[in-house]
Design a protein around this nucleic acid. Structure first.
Lengths: 166, 166
DNA sequence: TTTTGTTTTCAAAAATAATTGAAAGCAGTG
DNA sequence: CACTGCTTTCAATTATTTTTGAAAACAAAA
């Protein structure tokens, strides 16, 4: 496999994985492209490399900046904007966890708290309350774990990882 | 909030969370319905409670069985099939991790291994190889961690959780 | 101010995913 | 065998998501 083929495969695969996990495929492909780029690139480059429209490129670059995974770079004397991705994988993962925790886990927790408060009056509702409370406990644990992860640095993660697999 | 409202909210919310994570919303709603059901229910019940067609109910019940989250129950003297969900949250989570690991993480690992083997011949390709290898290391660690998680029992998880948040 | 190079927006179109429902399949029963 | 009650399938429809591209907005330069 040569380098061009490798890049293509990586971009395609990163996009596939993202869409499996409910993230826009093209957004992930733009991310992949920037991750492996040796330096910042402009939107025309993104459009050309991925064969997407200007609007699409713009939207996804914006979204990636919102996620805190990509940053803008202005070159002196140039009007065009350039973009580069955060390449420290630990920071990337942290950022993704942080965003998804906020957007998806926490709203669910809120609902669970509300719903778990329902009085298990009749025996028919006991099953409901039981399951909901189990999920509630579990989710709160997961949330706390992610909080710890997000606060921690890369070495801490590695040490926890080692303890886990041991 | 009364019990009926609570159930509705839980089912809706479980479906929403699932679709955020790339899982069919209706499949998750069927799952939610079975999770909180005090006993096994038949497909007509599912159709009625969720307002979905026979075909849809059937497909999603089958998918849930493929995931190992729902099981069939045959009642003596009855031709109809009944379904019930695994309610032990630890088993549920494990099953979900196992499936998604297989279907989504492992294929990605395979690609990473292939792609990371690309020779960093020119300086332009160095950036590529560097990033890919970082992701590769990270992903393999994540995979190992999930393996450990899947093999472990619930108490083990709690103890690791406690160590992590400490 | 006007021109120029660029980014942003968003309604419409295209692509993709989910759902329906009717027909076919299947297995017990009479 | 034919009937009955139920499950499964899948082509067609419907819903949802993504993408396009042209127009508008913007801002630096002339």
């Amino acid at each position: 496999m040569d380098i061009r083929e490798g890049k293509e495969k990586f971009i395609e695969s990163w996009g596939k994985m993202a869409s499996d996990w409910g993230i826009n495929r093209t957004m992930a492909q733009v991310h992949a492209l920037l991750l492996i780029a040796p330096e910042a690139i402009c939107s025309d480059q993104v459009m050309e490399d991925l064969n997407i429209s200007r609007g699409n490129a713009n939207m996804n670059l914006r979204a990636l900046m919102d996620w805190g995974l990509v940053h803008k770079q202005l070159k002196a004397g140039e009007r065009k904007e350039y973009f580069y991705a955060e390449k420290d994988m630990w920071i990337v993962i942290r950022q993704i966890i942080l965003q998804r925790k906020r957007k998806e886990l926490e709203p669910m927790l809120k609902v669970l708290d509300e719903v778990a408060a329902v009085e298990a009056s009749c025996p028919e509702s006991e099953s409901f309350t039981k399951v909901v409370r189990d999920i509630q406990v579990f989710s709160h644990k997961a949330n706390q774990t992610l909080d710890a992860l997000v606060k921690a640095d890369s070495n801490w993660f590695t040490s926890v990882f080692l303890r886990m697999v041991k």
